[in-house]
């Protein structure tokens, strides 16, 4: 017996694949839009904040970075209803992705903050700027420029990692692929198609984010 590839039944379900792809993109964008500002604040806290707060952020970062995303996902979806918080599958997926992304992004942004020479901050202070204005006008812009490629990478990782949320019944691309498989049993074809879609998404977002990088940070040379 030789395996006969047949992509027909898979392509016939393209509306579902498109829907799944959009949900994958949407989950990642939403999680990033919510998570990045939080990460920036927490990174500043971990770098410059009072010691107890630094310690608190550090604990959160280590807790999340040293446990599997799937477990965090299960916790949000299955355990939180016990505390009276009931989220939809997509809501739980976004919350878990935010919690996960922030932990990694804090460390990335912090690396950028620590890279700013102390002399610049002292110069700002000498000019009479408060800590918030020093952060805003001197530190944050430069820090973001330094860590932008790492953040872009993290976004793509997050996009690919979102394939796990099918476990809690969020119907993103991987879930749709699994649904198509159980009806068509064309597993290899489905895996082939979604591999190409994920690859295309990753490359497209890398190119897009690279383009933004080029434009947004041109002023700094």
């Amino acid at each position: 017996m030789e395996y006969q590839f047949d992509f027909g039944p898979v392509f016939a379900r393209w509306p579902e694949l498109v829907q799944g792809t959009f949900l994958t993109i949407w989950l990642s964008l939403a999680a990033t839009a919510i998570g990045l500002p939080i990460a920036a604040v927490l990174a500043a806290t971990r770098s410059y904040g009072p010691r107890p707060l630094r310690w608190l952020v550090g604990t959160y970062v280590e807790l999340i970075r040293n446990t599997p995303f799937l477990i965090q996902l299960y916790f949000v979806f299955f355990a939180m209803p016990g505390l009276g918080i009931r989220l939809s599958a997509n809501g739980a997926a976004i919350l878990a992705m935010v919690v996960n992304l922030v932990a990694y992004a804090v460390e990335i942004v912090r690396a950028g903050l620590e890279a700013i020479p102390r002399g610049q901050i002292e110069a700002g202070r000498a000019l009479g700027l408060g800590p918030i204005r020093i952060l805003r006008h001197i530190v944050l812009g430069q820090a973001l420029r330094i860590v932008y490629p790492a953040l872009a990478s993290q976004f793509v990782l997050q996009l690919l990692g979102s394939s796990l949320v099918s476990a809690i019944a969020a119907e993103e691309l991987t879930a749709v692929a699994n649904n198509i498989m159980i009806v068509t049993f064309r597993n290899f074809e489905v895996f082939g198609v979604i591999t190409v879609i994920y690859l295309g998404l990753s490359l497209a977002f890398r190119a897009l984010l690279g383009g933004i990088h080029h434009r947004a940070f041109r002023w700094t040379g």
Binding site: Y74, F77, A89, S166, A167, I168, A169, E171
Partner: peptide, 13 residues
């Protein structure tokens, strides 16, 4: 309608 990847997840839900 919600689909889960394995039986225990569905039971847990």
């Amino acid at each position: 309608y919600l689909r889960f990847d394995d039986g225990p997840s569905c039971v847990q839900a």
